[in-house]
Design a binder for these strands. Structure first.
Lengths: 335, 335
DNA sequence: TTTGTCTGGACAAAACTAGGACAAAATTGT
DNA sequence: ACAATTTTGTCCTAGTTTTGTCCAGACAAA
């Protein structure tokens, strides 16, 4: 996959005004100047009227330094580094950073900032307010911003999930109109749907079929799963909501998927859930695991264990099961 | 690149008065003249009495410069650029600053042949084949590539629209499984939903509420409208499918929208269509036009004309009606 | 007549620069 | 654990450049 195109073509010509640099890097104008004054982080060219003019090279440098700072590096330490060294530092840090969900405390250098305990609830409240005021633009902005603050899996778990529940709850209580809920849902459908395209695919990923069974019309849970698993190197075959068991089987076979994941939310007591799950399990190759999740899962524990389906309690649980599955299958394949 | 202009249907004929240009670009009349005076940003033709007459080309230029400024460019830097250079600069900038962090590049095949005049049907066939083989990745790739070749409106009209119809048709005839249709629909939902975020919003756009009435569960048509109108400087308030008339009214009022657009596809003979449309028209401010479109529109001609709704026969018709509406309302506003 | 556009110039707000001050946060020393 | 020290983000002033808005008088359009 030729993604290096843009990176390799960094233009050393100085042409960007400071305001644009601030926009692109997320730093303030003041800060950029302060860094230059104190540590000569960058040394921009000047226009004939002394305005600073930055090159792509400078911007890349500032961007990397910002990330390094976010990872806990001190400015004094990273300021003198070359671009190459900076890249190394950042990529090394982010490698550890992505495992923070697990038990990577050990690898966390002592000087690391303690993962900014910004209350996720604040973000969610702000989003709810945007929904209530029908401020779609603001809503989108908040969603995008929130995503920058943390890794995709934890974002889904701490922000998007709770947000969905609160929107549902508020609508039921009459705090939000149906129109509000519709707007929010439609927007989230687009937003979450786009999340998985942040990942790059190599073509060798194992596939997983993701959908909801007949009768289950809410697809956002399933869509979250699709975004989630693509982070861990799975290629989701996403079918949208309301797919009959036969079709799930056919799709799994045709695409050669190694797993199936279903989301159950509403209605929780739909009798079709039982029939569809039973049918699915009986027609599907026994070697292919079926994962079940969502709010309605609790109502069907007995059925799930009887059929031998897996229902990890959290998103993280699902991740671990899938990772284990992938590694195991990889071993078998190469053995 | 002479072909580019014909494809994106930019008219080089000069005929727009300065007031309309100001309206469409969001700039003030004074500012447009000042830019011309100081930097020769545009060089409009003149009437025989020295009035400035702007072409679509000029408007596009001004619009882009405005966005470039918003991105932090200085007027001095962007003023001398050609339209193509401006497009490059703007798309480069807006690609970056929306992704403040994380070097996730938009996947853009670098080998895309420039403006190949491939028959649209070939593209559609290739897409259908990708769907049939469950090759989601290829499907996405084709969708993205197709978009590069032409403007968004013509892409929707010549590719996406026909593709949707063919998918529906093929499924009914049994050429595609339900699973295939599901996969394609889910993917298109994400793809089309993301289209409107290619546009940059200035904050001054008039709003338009877009949805489908109760009973109409297919939202892709409505979603296409949302993408379409954002090209022409409208801000869509998108509510997803299946919205009751009361809620549409409430949403229109709360958001201050100037128009409503509904998509009717299936089922075409649902009696709720009549009741919902009637209810909507009676509760909604008479000054707010309601546009109706989609496959099922034909079945309700009598009702539509009786209620005084508008149903432009093509997407282009809708565009023109909306453009006219916007310009007209602006006049009234300033008067 | 009334409203809108034209030209040229004036003016003021906004943005940038340089240098420095200040306080919060992080780090180090005891 | 506490105090001293360093680091770092933000803000201030004053002078310059850039940019947006406004004005006046003449003319054109409705």
């Amino acid at each position: 996959m030729a993604t290096l195109e843009t990176i390799s073509s960094i233009d050393t010509a100085a042409r960007h005004p400071i305001r644009l640099v601030a926009n692109r890097t997320g730093l303030t104008v003041d800060l950029i100047r302060a860094w230059e004054k104190r540590y000569h982080v960058v040394d921009p060219a000047r226009s004939d009227t002394k305005r600073r003019l930055y090159s792509d090279y400078d911007i890349e440098r500032l961007r990397l330094i910002r990330i390094a700072k976010q990872n806990g590096r001190r400015l004094v330490d990273v300021a003198p580094l070359t671009l190459e060294e900076l890249r190394d530092v950042v990529s090394e840090d982010s490698r550890y950073d992505s495992i923070t969900d697990n038990q990577a405390e050990v690898y966390r250098p002592s000087w690391t900032s303690p993962l900014e305990a910004t209350d996720a609830q604040d973000d969610i409240d702000a989003m709810l307010f945007a929904v209530q005021t029908m401020d779609q633009h603001r809503f989108d902005q908040l969603l995008q911003e929130g995503l920058v603050k943390q890794s995709l899996p934890s974002y889904l778990e701490t922000v998007i999930g709770p947000l969905l529940r609160e929107i549902g709850e508020s609508t039921r209580l009459g705090k939000l109109r149906i129109a509000h809920e519709h707007m929010a849902t439609a927007h989230l459908r687009t937003f979450i749907g786009a999340l998985r395209f942040r990942e790059t695919y190599t073509g060798g990923e194992p596939k997983i079929v993701i959908t909801t069974p007949t009768g289950q019309l809410h697809e956002l849970g399933a869509l979250m799963i699709a975004a989630l698993v693509s982070v861990d190197g799975w290629l989701p075959v996403y079918l949208g909501p309301n797919t009959p068991a036969d079709e799930i089987v056919a799709c799994t076979n045709q695409s050669g998927a190694r797993a199936v994941s279903l989301s159950l939310t509403y209605p929780a007591d739909d009798p079709r859930i039982a029939t569809e799950l039973t049918r699915l399990r009986s027609q599907l190759d026994g070697k292919i695991p079926v994962f079940v999740g969502g709010a309605a899962t609790a109502h069907h524990q007995e059925l799930i264990s009887r059929l031998g389906l897996e229902s990890p309690p959290t998103l993280n649980g699902l991740r671990h099961s899938l990772n284990a599955l992938r590694d195991r299958q990889f071993k078998e394949q190469t053995a």
